[in-house]
Design a protein around this nucleic acid. Structure first.
Lengths: 302, 302
DNA sequence: TCGACCGTTTGTCCTAGACAAACTCGCCGT
DNA sequence: ACGGCGAGTTTGTCTAGGACAAACGGTCGA
């Protein structure tokens, strides 16, 4: 049989659209229109799954489902090709260098990419490398993905190669002479962006703070346990732009309530740039804020 | 207010139990018994979430929910403390060394752990290190987590430290002289165990195969795209023991159907040890099988 | 040009029922 | 006594449609 074995769970896995949303769209907009198996369960044809993935990408760019659903496939594709929002372009000189790096990824030239990055790292030093190369490059990759200029697997390759490089650089740093504050770096479940965490870790390590790396996706209650067990001063969480906005503030308030008062809570990443302030939580929208926050913490805890 | 802000989505995030399951248990077994907010939505008290986490852990050990629900909290705790299944214990000498490493993790002694591991790596060489130290240690950590001997955040710390070490070791390997087969190493969405992938990658790299690292959690359709774009010979997927059994065979059959015939599909990891064979898919239940599979592939493709 | 308001859009939650796959247990034949 | 087979039970996931709050977009007034 060549029938598509995309049941609703498989579509959820592959598109990131929840079952509830898939059923709701069908009810409300008349798309998708899955077939049914003998048992009345939805079976999604191949092309509809592809279309759903496209719609999801456009929604991440800020488009709204109601508008997208009515469009023909060609119109969707045209929208995807167009740049999402013509933001201000930063200095062309910088962009050109970044584009070279991006181009290496697009050509799947792992070796060339690693070489180029290592050269930049050596030339700039870790701090400037992170702030001036890696942060904008990551941003650029994100935009390129939104525009459809690179594929998911190319983004995966980028992430994988870059984390390796960065981990290596962090490992080579000398141990800090002032091992305070002790910082747990992690992210909550569903948030799997690792690169942001590593960038912060390298900056904090350069400041001489002691980082307890925990990878991504720590359940909230585990974060609390870990804070107690490691005698931690700071919990630093990273939220990527892709993380559902609506969940962030509730999550932070919840965590703040569960944590002991003497543990600071820092939230950073692209995702919190539009978040509203919250008492007891420090927002670090920019990478550079990490160094300042460390200094402030030290001032308050002599 | 000190009311518990655990809504059903937060409980799903923190326990890994789906909303459907949470509601079903409530209907069927009378547990959990969340309060309701003004809007009629479920609010789970703190202690019930903790109990749900415990129940989940016991279920991962093979217990069944129907039995567990009726038990008192003390009985649950007692079950958790007992070792899950008295399997055959391997040679005591090996276990003792592993226990020392495990003990370092439990004491959160990152530096000591890395040092000890690096020594073993130097002494054994990468291949034997992976097969004789890392694989059993990972297994041991998994068992320790089931027994409640280590916490989730300790497991995260273990994973994070170990992946760093292993990535570094892989990076130091010379490039293979025979860059075939070209292998994509990854896992499907929901499967985030990274260590297994890295272990395989190091063994394949030692065999001189060329690995395209893709991290974890690749959507099925992206795997297919990547296979075409990278001109790939083999897709290697890893399934941990925690991955839902029911999904595996459907997923592999689906992927096999979508992939071009000339691309081999390898499935490995603890999760596939009990899986039933499938045409066109090679099962590699043991780490050592990776080397054999590589040799077999080369024999078939001169 | 900016802020406040109001209607519309959209995701998530709700209840309750059905069924298939997985597991348990007891029977029967060797 | 032991292993395979069938019937019965357990369990997760799917289905349907309804409800509502938060977020968004556009309009009006300062």
């Amino acid at each position: 049989m060549n029938l598509p074995p995309f049941n609703i769970a498989a579509v959820e896995r592959d598109t990131g659209l929840s079952k509830d949303v898939l059923r709701m769209w069908e009810r409300r907009y008349g798309f998708p229109t899955p077939e049914r198996d003998a048992n009345g369960e939805r079976l999604y044809p191949h092309d509809q799954v592809e279309r759903l993935r496209l719609v999801k990408r456009l929604m991440d760019q800020g488009h709204r489902p109601g508008k997208l659903m009515g469009l023909a496939s060609e119109e969707l594709a045209a929208l995807a090709r167009r740049a999402p929002a013509p933001r201000e372009s930063s200095s062309a000189a910088v962009d050109e260098k970044l584009d070279e790096l991006l181009e290496l990824i697009r050509r799947h030239d792992s070796v060339g990419y690693l070489l180029a990055m290592q050269q930049r790292l050596g030339r700039q030093g870790l701090q400037r490398f992170v702030q001036d190369t890696l942060a904008p490059l990551t941003h650029e990759v994100g935009k390129a993905w939104e525009d459809g200029r690179i594929e998911v697997f190319e983004e995966h390759l980028f992430t994988e190669l870059t984390t390796r490089l960065l981990r290596q650089a962090i490992g080579a740093l000398p141990a800090g002479s002032r091992p305070r504050p002790r910082v747990i770096l992690t992210s909550v479940p569903e948030e799997q962006h690792e690169l942001g965490l590593l960038m912060v870790e390298s900056l904090l390590a350069l400041e001489g703070a002691e980082c307890v790396p925990q990878g991504t996706q720590m359940p909230v209650l585990e974060i609390v346990h870990a804070a107690e067990a490691h005698r931690i001063d700071v919990i630093a969480l990273s939220f990527s732009i892709a993380f559902p906005q609506r969940q962030i503030s509730g999550l932070l308030r919840h965590l703040r309530q569960l944590l002991p008062g003497h543990v600071a809570l820092w939230a950073g990443g692209e995702g919190i740039k539009r978040a509203t302030p919250l008492e007891g939580v420090d927002y670090l929208p920019l990478l550079a804020d990490a160094a300042e926050a460390t200094a402030a913490w030290r001032k308050a805890h002599p």
